[in-house]
Amino acid sequence: MGEKIEFPNNYSMYLKKAEQYLNLNEPIKALHYIELAYDIKQEPNISTLYVSVLVQLERYSEALEIVENIKGKNIMKTEYVSLYLFLLIKNKRFVQAETYLTRLTGGDQLSIDELSQMKKLLEEEILIDEKERHQAKNELKKKLFALADLSREEQLKIVDEVSLLTPDELINVIPFLMSNPFVDPLAKSFYLQNLVDINADVEFEFETLGITKIINPSKLDSFNEESIVVQVNEQLNMQLEKNPSMLMSIKPELNFHLLKIYPFAKQIIENPVEWVKLYIHLYSFETENLEFDSRFSAREKKMMEWIKKISKMEG
Results as ranks from 00 to 15, higher is better:
D184V: 04
M313R: 10
L164S: 05
L22M: 02
F204W: 15
S111N: 00
S284M: 14
H134Y: 07
L164A: 05
I128Y: 07
K251L: 02
E154W: 04
L31P: 06
Y50H: 12
Q20N: 12
Q135H: 10
L122D: 00
I89P: 02
N233W: 06
D39R: 09
S47V: 10
V273S: 13
N233C: 05
F206A: 11
V55E: 06
I128N: 12
E226W: 03
K266T: 09
E291V: 08
L209I: 10
N138V: 14
P252R: 00
S47K: 14
N199I: 11
S61T: 08
S151N: 14
E154Y: 07
Q235K: 14
M313V: 11
N271Q: 05
H281R: 03
I128A: 13
K266H: 09
R152V: 08
S284Q: 14
Y14L: 08
V230I: 15
K157N: 13
K277G: 09
M304F: 13
L236S: 04
E132S: 09
Y38M: 10
I261A: 06
Y50N: 13
I307G: 11
S249A: 12
Y191C: 07
N9G: 03
D201L: 09
S294D: 00
I75A: 11
I46T: 07
K131W: 13
L186P: 05
T78M: 09
D129V: 10
T78L: 03
E125W: 02
Q193R: 13
I40R: 06
F182L: 10
N194L: 08
V273E: 08
V232N: 10
A187D: 03
Q155E: 05
L31T: 02
